[in-house]
Amino acid sequence: MKRRTFLITTTAALAAASIPVARYYSNGKKNYPPLIMPEELGNFCEEKVIREIGDQYRKQVPQESEKAKLQQILLTDDAGKLTAVSDNAAIAALLDKKIQDDFNSSRILVLSGWVISVTEARQCALFSLT
């Protein structure tokens, strides 16, 4: 018997006895405003994990531990323009770009094990304050 066959059959058999772990949290998730809920990360994490990440970020970056400061950073684009807090579509687009820029520039953090962008961490921090 090949070792790789063994590995496949072993793990498959064990998996059969378990509950699927591939839970995807998008179903049934509350519809939070995009400013406080990172869209992609929110698909993978329960709210308590989002909150935990936010708590960790605020602890690591105490100068960004207040709502107003976090909102200001998150809503300001590269050119310094502030997006209106009521415009969810514009906020979603802005944050999507910021997150993409973060990953492309390696502005990433590991919080609660998740490799996330700094922008996502700030969103989580804001969520943890709600």
Binding site: L41, F44, I99, F103, S106, I108, V110, G113, W114, V115
Partner: peptide, 24 residues
């Protein structure tokens, strides 16, 4: 390597990576 992979997966808009506790 796992952290860098997480950065790459994020940059490629594929999803996210989670590291296990012992690494932290």
């Amino acid at each position: 390597i796992n952290k860098v992979l997480g950065q790459q997966i994020g940059a490629a808009r594929l999803g996210r990576v989670k590291l296990y506790d012992f690494l932290l």
